[in-house]
Simulated scan of single mutants.
Amino acid sequence: MVIPSDELLSHQVVSTFDHVDTSDLQWCERVWFGAFDTTGRFFIGAGLGKYTNRNVIDAYVSVVEGSTQHNVRASRELRPDVDGLTVGPITYRISADYSRVGFRLDENDYGISLDVMAEGVVPVVEQRPQMFRRSRGRVVNHMIRFFQYGRAHGWLNVGGTRYEIDPASWVTQRDRSWGIRRSAAEYLPPPEGVDVGFGLQPPKRARITYYWHSVTMQFDDFALQYEGAESPEGERLGTHHGELWFPAGDNRKRLRVVNVEHEWDLVPHTTTNEVAGGRDLITLEDGSTMELTFRAMTRYSRKTGGYFGFRGWASGAWMGSQWVAGETLDLADPEVQAELKGGVWDYAVECRYGDQVGYGNIEPFIEGIG
């Protein structure tokens, strides 16, 4: 089937854009988008996932104010609208000149709406190396990602009150990924009475204790991104990667991050391994080091956006031709914390490097502890 994307001179296989050149159910294209004000009052998290071989496209938007998190999520059948980036009340937007991207959330039953766009202040940087992993001979991760940081503008409506999003005081982080990726939908149990996996070996999900980190930081004259996983003993697990790069027009050479040592402070007695702040010592490929400190200002649960499953839904799961859900959560409620345990959290952080102050997002994930 020919679709509008086929008018672009971008083909890389002898086929049309309505499908991909693999039948793997885990093939996806995903967007993650975060924006927050530098006082830490608001945090917006949003995402969109296109699962071509599952015939699913889904999206979510979360807004945190204080300890209250508002969520809207939606899913629809992908075809025939393969090129469309609207899912229920949520639309992922790309400007005509590709200089800005963002999300619009139309009025809905869950008390929030917004229109926020991001404009990059640094060029995009490609993840190096690409993510690749096999499990029992099968490729479960083979994907590429790029990152960009910038400033946000637009508006936000919470509970009937409208707030302007001013680029002077709002920062953004985003990433785009595509390829074969272990899907959150794999972590959902089949519905009662339905043997979805009949004749198939269940996925291997070793329950080991490990620590995962993904960090993005932007300062006035440089940006940093690094991520990886470690055992409790500090042993590296899988691929680590990261990079230091500079604003558009700055010709300084980008430098790879080759090692990171963490000293992160957890908030006592929290079942979700809440992070208060910390210190990172970064080693670059030229042998130089950077010591950065940060403090957490606010956070939101990405579990409600489909990571590892939430209330019967996970990213990539078939929910029917059209589906919308949402709720408001009190993150200080012990019952809510128990429900969100084991999920991914994003933190809006204030960062310091010497006398410089910057802002960023950290994503710590600790499996098997707490």
Rank of each mutant, 00 (worst) to 15 (best):
H19D: 07
L255T: 03
F198C: 07
L200K: 10
V267I: 13
H213S: 11
P203D: 14
W212T: 15
M290S: 10
S15E: 09
N251Q: 00
E230W: 07
G312T: 08
Q218T: 14
D333V: 00
W245G: 00
V349I: 12
P4N: 02
Q12T: 14
I208N: 13
G309V: 07
P167E: 02
G234L: 01
F36G: 14
D195G: 08
G238Q: 02
R207D: 14
L281F: 05
V196D: 03
T91H: 07
F365Y: 15
Q173Y: 10
Q322V: 07
T16A: 05
H262V: 14
T52Q: 06
S231V: 11
N251W: 08
F294R: 04
Q12L: 09
E335F: 05
I282M: 09
Y347E: 09
H11W: 07
T289D: 11
Q26N: 15
D250G: 03
G88T: 02
V357I: 15
R30W: 04
S113F: 11
H240Q: 11
W323P: 04
T272I: 14
E363I: 03
A74H: 11
T272Q: 13
I362W: 14
F310K: 00
P268V: 03
E243P: 01
E274R: 15
G66N: 06
P202V: 13
E263C: 14
G309P: 07
G111E: 04
E335A: 12
R181W: 09
D109I: 06
V13S: 12
G320N: 01
N108C: 07
Q127G: 10
Q12H: 12
G242F: 04
F219H: 12
H11Q: 13
D83F: 02
G343E: 03
F308A: 07
A118S: 13
M319S: 06
